[in-house]
Each structure stands twice: as C-alpha cells, then as structure tokens.
C-alpha cells in the first residue's frame, strides 16, 4: 500500500520491481488471505476456496502494494478502486478490508450469519471497502468503466482495477465494455483476468472455449500482458508498472495465469472444489499445507 509516482515506464521494468522485504510481506499476506478464507468458510459451512486461492497473490499485490489507499479510510475519494466480476471470491477480500481497518475485524467472526454485512458476494451498501457490489457475472468491467469515466466530471485522479474470472469471458456484456473502454481510451483502467482454467461445470476450454484470449483483447484495442499469477514479484512488478504508466493511451488487460485451488494440492487437481467445505480435520491439514509452502 504505497503511493506510486506518476511517471512513465520508459525508465524500464526494473524500477518497479519490489525489494525482497516487500516480496516476503506480500507472500505472507497471500498466505493470510488463504488461511482466513478457510476460517471464514468454516463459519459458513460452504464457500469458494479455490476461486480465492487462484487470486490470492493478485489480491495481495493490489491491496498491500499497488493500489493507492488509505488505511482506515475506505471512502477516501482519491483512492484507487477495485471491482470484481467473480464476486464469489469476496470471502478472500473481506479479511483484507478488515486488516486495512475498513471495518472491525469482529465482523469476520459472523461471516454469513443472520444480519451479517458479509455474504458470499460483496455488497457496497453494507461493506466499507467494497467499491461496487457484485454477484451477477459480467457487470464489473462496465462498473469499473463508469468509475474511471467519471473522473472527467469530478476532476479526481485515481486508477480503477477490475478482476474478472475466465469463465466470465463468456458473458456478452464484457465485450460491450471492452469496445467502450478502447473507444474512449481509458488509460486509467486496468483489468485482470484470473485465468485459472475452471468454471462451475468444468474446464473453461471444454465448457465454452475463450482462447486465444490475448489476441481477442488485443483485437478489441487493449494493451495485453500475461503473467504467472502466483509469482508475487512478477505480478507486483507488472501491476506497479501498469499503474504508473502515464504514456499508455489505451486500457490494459492482464491475463493472470493461475491454478484454481493453488495452495491445497487436492484442490488444484479436482475442479469439483469450486464450491465446498472442509471438515475440521481436513481444514487443519489444508492449513498445514498452506503454511508449509512458499508460493
């Protein structure tokens, strides 16, 4: 969570590389996101572990490094914004928001309980830190565009990040939004596709193929980058660079190649874990596995 200087990237990529201490911190926060996800889903007894696990490094990089935010001030007008199309990964965002002081940590303990502001999908009316509500796949890029476009009439200066699922690429509205953002040269917009390869019914490429994804977005007028979404240093370097790039005259898209369920070995190989619950014994083993590895 640092303020990035608004400079062109022509100085080169290396200037955006995080140092070893930062990388270690972001790794630790990604682990924290995974562990908290296991804890919260145990309260609900159902949840999307694997959708969070694929995105954990990107969440960590965005909220703990790349985005311009103020701790304890979720409504600060100058903040960078984040919208998410795969809203079912909100269980991995809520711990971050509590950690950043956007709402009391005690809220997490009642996750999904009667009257809790925290449900499976994020609600901007109930949860400080949520920049736009989600739950219906395909809307988030349009929401992000609106937030970015409004800078023309408010004079505020911020970046808008939007994470979409790869299955979300099947929604027609995404491509309406893609055309609009290119047409309007929305350089303050950075979208990320969490390319974890799976959707509810199975492999994305078998359910409804979306490749060649990079070529599609390029053809729609976007600047496209591909990154290993679990390489925290690479993710952070790329997102820092895209955030700081003042010369880009088009929206940017990052294809974040990830593994659905990354961190718990059997979740990585079994697509049925899109939705589930771990018995306490299994949860302990999953926690031990996450803690034992360096992602």
């Amino acid at each position: 969570m640092t303020l990035q200087p608004d400079v062109s990237t022509s100085a080169g990529h290396n200037s955006h590389q995080p140092d070893a201490t930062t990388i270690e911190h972001l790794r630790e926060r990604a682990q924290f996101i995974r562990l908290e996800t296991i804890r919260l889903i145990d309260i609900a007894k159902t949840g999307h572990y694997t959708s969070v696990f694929s995105a954990a490094e990107v969440f960590s990089a965005l909220y703990y490094d790349v985005m311009n935010l103020r701790r304890g001030e979720p409504g600060w007008e100058g903040r960078d914004r984040f919208t998410i199309g795969k809203g079912h990964a909100a269980v991995g965002l809520f711990p971050i928001y509590a950690d950043l002081g956007f709402f009391p940590k005690e809220w997490l303990d009642n996750y999904t309980r009667l009257g809790s502001p925290l449900g499976d999908h994020p609600d901007m009316r109930k949860v400080p830190g949520v920049d736009f509500s989600s739950g219906s796949i395909g809307h988030a890029l349009s929401n992000a565009i609106g937030i970015a476009l409004a800078q023309r009439w408010t004079g505020q200066d911020y970046k808008v990040f939007c994470m979409m699922g790869d299955g979300e690429m099947q929604e027609g509205q995404v491509w309406e939004a893609a055309l609009f953002a290119a047409q309007n040269r929305m350089k303050n917009l950075i979208a990320i596709v969490d390319r974890n390869g799976f959707q509810l019914d199975g492999r994305v490429d078998e359910v409804m193929g979306i490749e060649p994804l990079d070529q599609k977005w390029r053809a729609f007028g976007w600047e496209v980058h591909t990154v290993d979404g679990h390489d925290i240093a690479a993710v952070t370097t790329l997102l820092r660079r895209l955030r700081a790039d003042g010369a880009r005259e088009k929206p940017a898209l990052v294809i974040s190649k990830t593994v659905k369920g990354r961190g718990v070995s059997y979740m990585e190989t079994e697509p049925g874990w899109h939705l589930g619950w771990l018995d306490p014994t299994d949860a302990q083993e999953a926690i031990a596995e996450i803690k034992a590895q360096v992602i």
Binding site: T83, S142, G146, I147, Q151, E176
Partner: peptide
C-alpha cells in the same frame, strides 16, 4: 450496448 450503458452509468453514479 444497453447493458454496458446501464452498468457504466451505475459506476459513474458512485462518484456523485
């Protein structure tokens, strides 16, 4: 693109 129009309008409205 009517759907994008409505969702974008909602994003705009968040800023006042």
């Amino acid at each position: 693109s009517e759907q994008n129009m409505v969702s974008t309008a909602a994003g705009i409205a968040t800023t006042g």
